[in-house]
Design a protein around this nucleic acid. Sequence first.
DNA 1: TAGATTGTTAATCGATTAACAATC
DNA 2: TAGATTGTTAATCGATTAACAATC
Lengths: 224, 224
Amino acid sequence: MKQFRKVSDNTVNRLPKYLRHIQEELNNGKDHISSAMLAEVVGSTSSQVRQDFSNFGNYGSQGYGYHLKSLDEAVRTIIGIHVPHHVAVIGTGCLGRALVEHLEFQKYNFQLCAAFDIDPSLIGSSINGVTIRHVSELSEYLETNEIHICILTVPKSAAKVVAQKLSGMGVPAIWNFTNETLNLNPQKTVVQNINLMDSLLSLTYHLEQLPNRQRDLPLPSDVE
Amino acid sequence: MKQFRKVSDNTVNRLPKYLRHIQEELNNGKDHISSAMLAEVVGSTSSQVRQDFSNFGNYGSQGYGYHLKSLDEAVRTIIGIHVPHHVAVIGTGCLGRALVEHLEFQKYNFQLCAAFDIDPSLIGSSINGVTIRHVSELSEYLETNEIHICILTVPKSAAKVVAQKLSGMGVPAIWNFTNETLNLNPQKTVVQNINLMDSLLSLTYHLEQLPNRQRDLPLPSDVE
DNA sequence: TAGATTGTTAATCGATTAACAATC
DNA sequence: TAGATTGTTAATCGATTAACAATC
């Protein structure tokens, strides 16, 4: 895996999409794929697919394309999931629970190791086979167990304090569903902010741009 | 609102972030803001903020900045939420329920109008004050009620069929949480695909790039 | 008035696409 | 061998940033 200079975020964001398609094609019993076919998955060009991969190494063969099994392995290694990652969910409300139950963790080598909440009525019950602990045990747990990624689904008001603690305890990644901005040292902890309302709002923008919805653009007759 | 040519997706994706900060500052009792301050919110430059807004009109004043109250109104109008939008959730499992309960719909002028599921044990119970109907009533409902946005949280296997029906019935926007690719006519129905695993994977990539995690880059000594 | 800050034009930067020799 | 398709260099395109006159 070469990787000379910083790979662009756009490229990184396409990797999981390639991976999913590679896995689908493997399941379909295919054994190789061309950059042109992969391009369709991300709505782009074969050039771009080849550029993306060439950031990391040479995985294809001329006249043949990419061997799916090797490419799958390569992309998993590039993303980093050739190695298992330990996940903890902080906040087991509706959303935390939905995420943990909805996502195919094991498929991508993630292991849910722990769950924390503050609500006494939840402590002791379990979520995806993991017993929910009280947040007061968080520091102690992190001292003795390595957690790579925390899913942060606590109320906004608690977000900053919890995130600070996680980073302080050496958790290197936070998947942040609270709408709070976490100001952590990016050399220590990477944060991915998910704001679903932002996404719904941009969908709404596009919806209002549909040809049959063009309203309130002042018509020439309005100007007179 | 002018808008001469197509506004870039990057710009559109920044609008909700501006809006949230504008609302925060309004709540803090401020009455105006500069492009430089707004730039911090999206981690960019004042130039870009001004470029973004200038796609739509002139909302600022030299030497003063942007009047928050007017800007709030302008951005809401640009996004399109000056007008209420009717939302229906299709699939009231864990995730559908979490989304509906977690997001501040009313704050952005969204109204949850209907909910559908296929599980008989859920029909008749309610979610955020809305009674869950059986999907068999979907067509009939859409004939008599205008729905602008459907949240699609059905199992992957059901996604294509349901989406086809929604588009056929004239639903102009689908917020798609199934990991199925929906091939709909984009002139008729806009789709926003949310793949949370993609996001978790890109977080993992970044996590593995952290300085203290740089592994398996062959060291010079490995080469000898 | 002087200082601040906009809106816009021009310059820069980076990402995408095209082209093509290399080669399976 | 001929056809297909890579990896890479160069060209293009678009988005971001800089600069500055206009003006509140």
